[in-house]
Design a protein around this nucleic acid. Structure first.
Lengths: 148, 148
DNA sequence: AAGGCCATGTAACAAGTTACATGATTAA
DNA sequence: TTAATCATGTAACTTGTTACATGGCCTT
């Protein structure tokens, strides 16, 4: 797959709980190639460059799965604004909360749709992982509703 | 306050939903000083350098509050591992989930304690913001319990 | 007063984001 | 066939992390 294809697929499958940008993918592919984890295929149209995983790449992936995942860095700009609530007008805060609710509602609807597809395709692991995102957005909405 | 003091205070008040490192604080302080938002005080022991906010700094803070907060980047390494569940042994996964539960339980207990203090101090905005973190950890624990 | 400890700050590195340049494809 | 659009990849920049060096402080 090419960088663009990988990005699109990863975004669909993982994007709900693992944010990425295209640029990261494009940067890593040559790096992975230099380590022998992927190899370049024959270039396609639009100077697109497909890659395929090597046996060493598969081994590296399996090894990566055994590493300590660590824990997430929580960083919520809405909560941060809420913490400085005393320095803002209530109208400002209300608008911030309203916009955040809108965002979480949309994200929730989207990931529910995607998860349904995954289940239909029998992609259980992906669906289970997506459930985290569903729970996350629901929790965020519940918080926003409680404080508004 | 010095970089260390600012970091300690920010971590206590905001750390539950806004991750930071000392190094960021130390880097920003000279940058803020060059913009006239803070000014250096007289150096203390251990080559510590206190800063104080200027009127221009207060204005910049107020201005910052009016900017679009955007939305958070969700990035959960446990969900990512869950998505690749098919490539791992169930023992591996179980251990990952157990450790994650432990982490969220500890974080939850800690932030509850901190929030209680904030309420006692009448720091309502900080307490409300912390409620986000409480909801977050509860949601994560509920997810982990459901999938284990 | 000597040793270990801890807080201070720095600097090198890694990762993430934004903005740009290029060239096919599509549609008018 | 020309203009607009969109996907591809790159490069510059910003932000975040990790590792390091220094020097007071506290304990023994």
């Amino acid at each position: 797959m090419t960088g663009g294809q990988l990005m699109a697929e990863a975004d669909r499958r993982l994007g709900a709980y693992w944010s990425m940008t295209r640029s990261q993918v494009y940067r890593e592919l040559p790096a992975l190639a230099s380590m022998g984890y992927v190899k370049m295929g024959r270039p396609g149209p639009r100077s697109s460059q497909p890659y395929s995983i090597t046996p060493a790449g598969k081994r590296a992936f399996t090894r990566w799965l055994t590493e300590d995942p660590g824990h997430e860095a929580i960083r919520n700009p809405i909560a941060l604004r809420a913490a400085f609530g005393a320095y803002q007008t209530s109208a400002q805060l209300t608008q911030t909360y309203a916009r955040a609710s809108e965002y979480h509602n949309e994200a929730l609807a989207h990931i529910r749709e995607v998860t349904k597809e995954m289940k239909k395709d029998g992609d259980d692991s992906a669906a289970v992982a997506s459930d985290f995102a569903i729970g996350y957005h629901k929790a965020a909405l519940a918080w926003l509703k409680a404080i508004k």
